[in-house]
Design a protein around this nucleic acid. Structure first.
Lengths: 187, 187
DNA sequence: GGCGTATGTGTACGCTCGTTCCTATGAGCT
DNA sequence: AGCTCATAGGAACGAGCGTACACATACGCC
């Protein structure tokens, strides 16, 4: 019994909530480097867990990506709907929309990047496209609290364009310009 | 029979035929399967050339992708500017814009997919972002033939949103709805 | 003709990837 | 206590990737 282990095992046994943490870390990796670099190994490194842990908790990489994007969409859609629900009338709803766009979405490079990455990934993967469509329909439903369906749909498309424009342009529109565009359209 | 120097054209040291064909095939592969699957081997297979031919003509895969997207942007931007240049007034320009969107872009699944793929790739690659920005600025300049700069910029963002919306939605807007949205905005 | 160079071709290397598989551990149950 | 099985851990495999490189061919030029 003189075998005193110089090889210290990691004390990291039984980690409840690891699955949740992996989803969060996946979003971090996507936001930081893009969905193309969100590999099992990159996520495992970022979360400081062994590689096998990922395939244990998620049957495939696509399943993990879908879980991550779903969480993000739930988060953004809930925040947006809360804003719309709190607006007393149409004018307030439009201001809340501007606030959501310029504050929440465009103010956070993270949310912006995640949106574009989701757009891209959804273009090729049916499972992810369902997540995108869910986002679109929830967004439209929130808008329809104060806008007629036709306007809601058009505003939704304009918002998508503004997001893309802000993400890719070197000379993006500022908050005042975005406000002017939205009010001109639906005000 | 020796060649007569007066009738023999200057020999082409570099035959551009294959290089051009490779660029076209690259666009085909991207449109069909996405930029993520546009590998050297996939393009070589599609163009029916050996693998080494790609690295001979293009120093790297990114260089090839940039050449392909550049060609596509040149093509679309030229078509659009021709439409704008031919429009006699603002109203005709808006109709031409609607026609460009619903006819050229949205009518062709290929152009639609290529646009989204470029958006995505540009979000991560600086060289491709330059191509996207060139597209945006050319598009805006074409619009400014008949629209004031502020409106041109907003219309450009709306158009991007409509393209994305059409590419990803299961229930996309039809030509009449797109026309109504654009005219409502800028008409 | 012969030569030199631009162009074309096929193979191989080193790497990263998703996924599988076997072993180890410890928390909860009896 | 002892058992059991969900969880944790790490190594390995086969495939596909970008790229390098050595070798083949064609053709203008002398």
């Amino acid at each position: 019994m003189s075998a005193d282990p110089t090889t210290v095992r990691r004390p990291r046994r039984h980690d409840p909530g690891r699955r949740d943490r992996l989803v969060d870390t996946t979003l971090d990796v996507i936001a930081a480097q893009g969905v193309a670099t969100a590999t099992h190994r990159a996520i495992a490194r970022a979360a400081d867990v062994p590689l096998g842990s990922l395939t244990y908790h998620f049957g495939s990489l696509t399943e993990l990506l879908a879980a991550a994007f779903t969480r993000h969409v739930d988060d953004v859609a809930a925040r947006f709907d809360a804003r719309m629900a709190a607006a007393p009338d149409r004018a307030a709803a439009l201001e809340a929309l501007v606030e959501h766009l310029t504050g929440d979405l465009l103010g956070s490079q993270r949310d912006l990047v995640l949106a574009v990455e989701l757009y891209v990934a959804a273009a090729r993967d049916a499972e992810l496209r369902a997540v995108t469509q869910d986002w679109m329909s929830r967004s439209r439903r929130s808008l329809e609290r104060h806008l007629d369906p036709v306007t809601a749909r058009e505003v939704d498309a304009l918002v998508e364009g503004l997001v893309l424009h802000s993400a890719l342009s070197t000379d993006p529109m500022d908050a005042a310009q975005i406000r002017a565009a939205l009010l001109r359209f639906a005000g």
